[in-house]
Design a protein around this nucleic acid. Structure first.
Lengths: 207, 207, 207, 207
DNA sequence: GATGAATGAGCGTTCATTCAT
DNA sequence: CATGAATGAACGCTCATTCAT
């Protein structure tokens, strides 16, 4: 019943080819202008093969969003591990900066994620543990809050606001330098993030 | 070149019927599941007639976004005129609150505008003067900044950040009460808006 | 709102072209081997036009069965009017003979109707009054029983049995002369029909 | 050339699984809505395995019809052996009754056989000797006519007419009780069968 | 201006069949 | 013998767009 290694590797390869090709086409010409024929043809497989791996175009898109979004966070977190930042505020600003930089270098990725990543998808993504990744988003975030000296009233709301601010304010500055280039916006953005976090601090009662 | 009043009124009526019907269908079943036939039929005109007023479905959509978005701002501004708030900070928070309330009462409108209104469309919307409205968005905003005692470094950036924060943080709380209901989020949101504004204040140099 | 005569005639013509072409293809290569493309192409209209007149292939087929089956009965009845047969038994045998002869001359029609006409369809066909025909099946049958001197216990059951016997016993003899040619079968068949009718006679009680 | 018993049993088992599963699916969802994948999957074999046993879906169907139809006759005949009916007329009415009862208890079987069994298939079925059955249809029929005291003009035509009458008149009454329930139809049906037989009797010339 | 019948390219999807393993 | 991943031709159907009326 167990397929041999060769066949399994072949399958994974085909699936990856479809995912990568689809990402390329989705970002270059939009999801609605991309047909399954396009994807299959460019991926070098038959149209029918597409349906062996995905239910339809939107099934593929959802898997793509989850995969790409989690990669961005994991890369930023890996960089964070190399630093010796202490406070959660500094850590989060570092992550924000790193993510913005990733998007600046890869505007296509920004466009794809911004258009598709909603808080709903983000939350469901937070919950699942990646198929083969050793480190998962939930564990990263848990760890960060657990080791923080400062406590926060409502961590989830805090993260929600920061993510929304970050993603909505990055889009136009990175892609169009409008109303100003992202580098010029960063100081304001980071200051706003810090301000959001301070609102949520629990001031320890003096004894 | 000017048609007589009766014919012109007839035309306007047909166009409005198409716009209203399209909004209804777009919000109820999505743009991609709405066909031009659907719109024309429900609007009570022939399919060919659609093309006398709009280039295609997306032309219609863009006009709809502009119309709906500007209405929301104008309604909020009209309410603002009834108050005697003094500072720009208070005025903007009032507008934000009013707009959120409009969206809370009309989630369908929120859904439509959020999914479609980008900073790019907003700016091009800011520029044009409404077809028949006496008061336009640009004049409202100009007026507000002119009468403010406090000066701001970069008003456009400030507005950009506020609008992005507002629209991105309203969506999920209003529609899904997630991660918390909009009323519970409001204090944090308004505080963040004020914080963004204070960042941008130009402190007058003492002489 | 009312279309002019020319356009209406044009529509009827298109619909008829589709029906005739479909009958031709259905009988020559089977329904399941006939595609909508085939029909449209051979009828000289675009594929999309098909869907202006029929929901799908089976919608067309059902209309075709009703039309063809009722034509066979009406033709036979018209011939019956030319005779001066008196008893219902003689009339029904005459109709059976005439219908068999029609099928003998047009085996393709036999094949189509036999494969598709069920008692259910026959009954629903009996009920409806033809779109433009002055004489309808129900009225023919009603008339025949009303003018009969002999009464029958259950006319519907009688007709059911006769129709089933007739259609099932004609098929193979007409198409394949198997187990014997239809002409050789006729005596037995007609005798069986008469026998079925006599079973159902209501013997008037002697006074 | 003969494979060993174990392997042969295994093969037979797979083939039977395919036949049984196909019958189930054909009758439940129609032949045209049943795919080879469906059959193979539900039978617990791989898709490719199907082609080791059958040419295609229609090959399988034909074998199924023959198998099912002959079973019905053989079961009825076995019951007949338990009786001591003397005349062929009584015997044939008994068989007809028994077959109707089988169909009444298993309408799914009726539906399958009625839709698919033609005189052509019946005759070719009559000819072949069942793969493993000791008693075959031809021998049963031969035996019945040989032991009959009454002679018939054309036994094949007689059987043809009886079978056609029986199968065409059973369908709707059993499945839909329309135009009347099968039990109510039986007297008329059996009387018609007897009438058909009497037509065909060869009256011995008195000497 | 207004109509709506006609178009036909193009879509997503299915599935019988093959063949390397 | 048995498998099941891969194929790709072929299907039904949609719908934006045109244009004769």
């Amino acid at each position: 019943m167990k397929s041999n290694g060769k066949a399994a590797a072949n399958k994974k390869q085909k699936k990856d080819a479809l995912l990568n090709t689809a990402f390329d086409l989705f970002t270059r010409q939009g999801i609605h202008n991309t047909t399954i024929s396009n994807i299959a043809e460019k991926a070098g497989v038959a149209k029918g093969t597409f349906y062996l791996y995905f239910k339809d175009k939107y099934d593929l898109r959802n898997r793509l969003i989850a995969r790409k979004a989690s990669q961005v966070f994991l890369v930023a977190d890996r960089a964070l591990q190399e630093t010796d930042l202490q406070t959660l505020e500094d850590k989060i600003v570092f992550l924000a900066d790193h993510i913005i930089n990733q998007f600046s270098r890869d505007p296509v990725l920004l466009r794809f994620i911004s258009k598709n990543l909603s808080w709903g998808i983000f939350k469901s993504q937070l919950m699942i543990v990646g198929e083969e990744d050793d480190v998962s988003l939930p564990s990263i975030i848990d760890e960060a809050f657990r080791t923080s000296k400062v406590r926060y009233k409502n961590p989830e709301v805090m993260i929600f606001m920061i993510i929304e601010l970050l993603s909505s304010c990055s889009y136009s500055p990175i892609l169009y330098q409008d109303p100003l280039p992202i580098e010029a916006l960063k100081p304001y953005l980071f200051e706003s993030i810090r301000s959001i976090m301070r609102q949520q601090e629990i001031t320890p009662t003096a004894e």
